[in-house]
């Protein structure tokens, strides 16, 4: 499917944010933003929902807790109970005090790595991936708003006029 894309390049984060606020208030949809660092407050402007990645981390962590506790129950209580230093481990309750450190560590281990892997896959940032930022400077000091013709009722010409009033530095049009 062929689509026309308009990239509005800004030299300042606040200018870009204000431009985004202005165009969205007039019903224009900003398809994406590329910036060298997160522009605070832009997510609700361009209609991004909050990420649920923290919930994923919580689930991984809970999984770690369950695995660690059940693992230690199996190893220490069920499979081969022993008497260490006068502390026989025949019941779980008598031993759970010393299971706390590993339960904690294992929960953190799974939560952190699970979330990191989820993050990389959801972002589609993995080794040997190709970057798709429109201009290389957008990882340095330029802030780019992306508009797609297919996602907007207004024509790209109209949008172009609007962002030009908003202090844009450069405009790039592309076919995709």
């Amino acid at each position: 499917m062929s689509d026309k894309i308009l990239y509005a390049v800004f030299g300042d984060d606040e200018v870009a944010l204000n431009a985004a606020k202005k165009v969205t208030s007039e019903g224009v949809h900003v398809s994406d933003v590329f910036s060298p660092f997160p522009i605070h407050g832009i997510d609700p402007v361009i209609g991004l929902k909050r990420t649920r990645i923290a919930i994923a981390a919580f689930i991984y962590g809970t999984l770690g807790t369950i695995l660690a506790l059940s693992g230690m129950y199996y190893f220490m209580i069920y499979d081969w109970p022993q008497d260490f230093g006068g502390k026989p481990n025949f019941t779980f309750v008598d031993n759970v005090t010393s299971f706390v450190p590993i339960t904690f560590e294992f929960s953190v281990l799974l939560a952190a790595h699970g979330m990191a892997v989820t993050f990389l896959f959801r972002n589609w940032t993995l080794p040997f991936m190709k970057a798709h930022n429109p201009i290389p400077e957008s990882t340095d000091d330029k802030f780019v708003l992306e508009f797609r013709a297919s996602e907007n009722e207004k024509s790209l010409e109209e949008i172009k006029a609007m962002v030009e009033a908003g202090g844009v530095e450069r405009i790039i049009e592309k076919e995709a």
Binding site: G85, G86, K87, T97, S98, V100
Partner: peptide
């Protein structure tokens, strides 16, 4: 709480 309890419980 845990640090104090664990160490006293452990050393017994």
């Amino acid at each position: 709480f845990y640090a104090q309890f664990l160490l006293i419980w452990y050393a017994d």
